[in-house]
């Protein structure tokens, strides 16, 4: 395996890590009004993600940094091409960050309602738009000779991209709802169980629709699978997650349910990534596609970055696991906070 492929996989791991981890707090935020009806319930929901969301978001920052470092042309083309959409995501993330931290600073209903709303919007927008962005990349972008995106903002809102946006949203909601079951008890947990069925069915329906639509819009994404049929094992990660989740919820194995939901997320991203390989951004004109080779940094940079990753990531995993263990178990009110 060459360095370019290694970095394709590593950036993929960062994206999957982000989707699984920030996925549960984006999901909790998107389901905020459906799950939490009273002030206490909302406090518990915020408390459940409180110690983690900031660290989870670092996966996105690191993923962005790694993409910039390893595949600068992809970083430049995608982020400038999706300008307004990216700005919406950024504003969403800003709203969320401050809402989580400021909501409980002042014990006053109007103050809380405003931050509650910003927390919901700030979670929902990114949860929807990440999938829209992926949908646009997957079906191929119109690029000019300088690799600049030539479509407009509204062209990003095409049916296929919107379908993938909804699929992504459903996957985030499943992360959120299984996480809530795992971390709460009583009414909140019951309410999460009640929502789970609808979310699961929506996810399955959207996953099937998305797969079929992909075959119509971007049949080339199946080329790698036709060439190496063994790759068809990868989508089974998602299928396994889909099968496992309702069973786990039924027998109150909430940790397993969260794991199953995470499998769905990871499987889906991996499936797409293997279909795209070695492209990062397929262009409408295939000669202009950004690949792991023509969009990459030099071998020296990729090597230096690999050393940084190998030195740093194990340490990160070590203390991240330690902190998750400190907060093991159900959330209690008055556990501290902002």
């Amino acid at each position: 395996m060459d360095l370019n492929t290694a970095w394709f996989l590593l950036v993929g791991v960062l994206i999957i890590g982000y989707a699984i981890l920030d996925g549960f707090d984006l999901g909790v935020g998107s389901l905020y009004y459906l799950l939490g009806k009273t002030n206490e319930e909302r406090k518990v929901l915020l408390g459940s993600i409180g110690p983690f969301w900031d660290g989870n978001e670092v996966w996105l920052l690191t993923g962005g940094g790694a993409l910039f470092a390893a595949f600068p042309l992809v970083y430049a083309t995608v982020f400038s091409g999706f300008y307004l959409a990216m700005m919406l995501v950024l504003f969403g993330l800003i709203f969320r960050a401050v809402a989580i931290e400021f909501r409980n600073q002042i014990d006053e209903p109007v103050w809380r309602q405003r931050w509650d709303f910003l927390f919901f919007v700030g979670s929902f927008l990114p949860a929807l738009l990440f999938g829209v962005a992926v949908g646009n990349v997957a079906q191929g972008l119109p690029l000019d000779n300088a690799y600049n995106y030539t479509g407009g903002f509204l062209a990003l809102l095409n049916p296929y991209a919107l379908l993938l946006g909804l699929l992504g949203l459903a996957a985030f909601l499943m992360q959120g709802v299984t996480f809530t079951m795992m971390k709460t008890e009583g009414t909140l947990q019951k309410r999460a169980e009640g929502l789970f069925g609808t979310i699961w069915i929506s996810f399955v329906a959207l996953y099937l629709a998305g797969s079929i639509y992909t075959y119509i819009v971007a049949p080339s994404l199946f080329d790698n699978y036709i060439r190496y049929p063994v790759l068809y094992l990868v989508p089974f990660i998602t299928v396994a997650g889909i099968a496992l989740a309702p069973w786990a919820v039924r027998y109150a194995r909430y940790g397993t349910a969260f794991l199953a939901s995470s499998l769905c997320m990871a499987g889906m991203i991996l499936t797409l990534a293997l279909g795209m390989f070695p492209n990062w951004v397929p262009a409408v004109d295939p000669n202009l596609s950004l690949t792991i080779y023509n969009a990459a940094s030099s071998q020296l940079t990729l090597k230096a970055m690999l050393i940084i990753a190998l030195a740093g990531v194990p340490i990160v995993l070590f203390y991240t696991i330690y902190v998750y263990r400190v907060f093991k178990g159900k959330v209690k009110l008055n556990q501290g906070g902002y």
Binding site: D54, G55, L61, G65, I308, G312, G337
Partner: peptide
Amino acid sequence: AAEGVFAFFLESTFMGLLLFG
């Protein structure tokens, strides 16, 4: 990227621990 790996993770993870734990 190094800032993410060596600094932000450290800062935010232990910040969460101090705030809630």
